[in-house]
Nucleic acid binder design. Structure first.
Length: 486
RNA sequence: GGGGUUGUAGUAUAGCUUGGUUAGUAUCCGAGGUUUGGGACCUCGUGACCCCGGUUCAAAUCCGGGCAACCCCA
């Protein structure tokens, strides 16, 4: 293919195949202008192409959070060391990754400040002041912000960055029941956005004690399967019980006149999801975006010849207006041939391309080309809007179906250690009967050379009698998803 | 946590072994011309040796350190 030979030589196309995942992903990120590296390891620039999608995710989630009565606020970036140290499990979990501010100019500060790796510590000092009565509850606050975790593992753009953007929801309830009920609502919002906007299916379940959030009583997570066989933890919800309430003194006077500790939750979705989405949908030609996540859903490429130029250009502008709701890009650049433009917009992941030239003009039609499967169709201009609507919806569905197939095809049920090892070796997610002993989970990681329990789904396929833990052989408590993870 | 590879323009690269012209090429980018249905062509032009130190008359090249990217193993 001529096209193929040209790739790479001019530094514009992606040269790596998707099978060569790391190389492919790095190229995709740079060439589709999603992100760029900076001088600080593990930090990236979120360029407009990716930031616009983040804004969309934010917007949709924010709307839904507000419906649930969650209000936005903003807490400071810096956390005094004393506050940070209050909840011990939390400290243990985060301390190795915390960056400290110790100097102002040339003078050393008398107290050092943590750059937030997450905001529990600073928010809960305030919560303790604000909450006095059962009438103050529930308190439901959220902030959209950045956090810094000084990871030492090899960074990957979007998927493992030291600084990232997210939402931090922090809610407080009078009773455990009310607090726990929120888990379903929040995970419902996150999974709706992932499914309907990002076209990503996930495995939803509870984290094991070993893997749960530092300071939480339990964690519900959404796990995603990447094309290189590794899993990624996406959005999550933590029920903290009274752990933080006790550490930070979040108490209230209840109806019965007794002072009680409150129950708390925290939840988050981060810019990591952008990386998950880019990686799962895209191909060797470049980025593929689900229409509902794409800032520009359409590109219009007019085919301009001298004799018909004016007419075609006029029609193209008309179409641009008709399709305004899809934020179309009209590529009128005359210095590039259409073929060049096709490749460029495919690289950048525009879901649908509309071609219009003299041939179409005569027939009052246009050619539409899908980014997800390359299929071309002739469409009458008078029907264009409804056809575009239909095709975009089909692309959205197709991308989800593809991603779902990738996920489902890579889950295998295993019954013993050998099957488990083989599954992990083959880059599968194993569905594994386990007991709930910590030792067995440690052992599982050892046996599989690094795989871990992703989560434990609510729906348990007990069915045919009892199962035994693949590690110790005793009666299993549950089936868990196990795989290598970022 | 351990081991390895690599840093030359916006991108992809040559040169490095054996130090020595004005650091070569393609593409991108800018100007002009000719073109335009899957990465057109011609002319001219702009643009680079990761940082700090050392060795040397002389460093992209050799040495040390730092920073960064990537790979493998735990």
């Amino acid at each position: 293919m001529k096209n193929k030979e040209n790739k790479g030589r001019d530094g514009k196309g992606i040269t790596a195949e998707k099978d060569d995942f790391s190389k492919w992903f790095a190229e995709l990120i740079i060439k589709a202008e999603l992100a760029d590296y900076t001088a600080v390891s593990g930090t990236i620039v979120f360029r407009p192409a990716s930031y616009a999608i983040w804004e969309k995710i934010k917007e949709e989630i924010d709307k839904r959070f507000k419906k649930l009565g969650i209000k936005n606020c903003y807490f400071p970036l810096l956390i005094p060391e004393k506050s940070f140290m209050r909840e011990q499990e939390h400290v243990k979990g985060f301390k190795p990754e915390v960056a400290w501010v110790t100097y102002a100019g040339d003078s050393k500060l008398s107290e050092r400040f943590a750059v937030r790796p997450t905001s529990e510590a600073i928010m809960y000092e305030s919560y303790a002041k604000w909450i006095r009565s059962w009438r103050d509850l529930p308190l439901k606050l959220n902030q959209w912000n950045n956090v810094l975790r000084w990871e030492f593992k090899h960074p990957v753009p979007f998927l493992r960055t030291r600084e990232f953007l997210w939402n931090e929801g922090h809610t407080v309830y009078a009773t455990k029941e009310d607090a726990e009920k929120e888990g379903g609502e929040i995970i419902g919002v996150y999974s709706e956005i992932c499914r309907d906007y990002l076209a990503l299916p996930s495995l939803i379940g509870k984290k094991s004690d070993k893997e749960k959030f530092a300071g939480a009583e339990h964690t519900i997570s959404m796990e995603f399967y990447m094309p290189n066989g590794k899993c990624v933890q996406g959005p999550d919800f933590h029920h903290d019980g009274q752990n933080f309430a006790k550490a930070y003194g979040i108490k209230f006077l209840d109806r019965d006149g007794k002072e009680k500790f409150a129950y708390q939750n925290t939840f988050a979705i981060s810019t990591r999801m952008l990386g998950v989405m880019f990686a799962i949908h895209s191909d060797s030609r470049g980025l593929i975006l689900p229409p509902r996540a794409a800032p520009n859903k359409i590109v219009i490429v007019p085919i301009l010849f001298d004799d018909s130029k004016e007419k075609v250009a006029g029609k193209a502008r008309e179409i641009e207006k008709t399709l305004k709701e899809f934020s179309p890009i009209l590529d009128m650049r005359e210095e590039y041939k259409p073929g060049f433009k096709f490749n460029e917009w495919e690289m950048k992941g525009i879901p649908l391309r509309i071609e219009i030239g003299p041939k179409e003009l005569d027939k009052e039609s246009v050619v539409i080309v899908r980014r997800d499967n390359g299929k071309k169709e002739n469409v009458k201009i008078r029907k264009l809007k409804e056809e575009v609507d239909r095709v975009l919806e089909e692309i959205q569905k197709n991308l989800f179906a593809r991603a779902e197939k990738l996920l489902k095809d890579n889950i295998v049920k295993v019954r013993n250690v050998n099957e488990l090892k083989k599954a992990v070796e083959n880059k599968k997610i194993a569905f594994v009967p386990l007991c709930d002993k910590r030792g067995c989970e440690d052992n599982l990681k050892f046996e599989t050379i690094g795989a871990k329990v992703l989560n434990i789904p609510d729906e348990q396929p007990w069915g045919t009698g009892k199962n035994s833990c693949v590690i110790c052989g005793e009666e299993a408590e549950y089936f868990a998803y196990v795989g290598k993870s970022y």
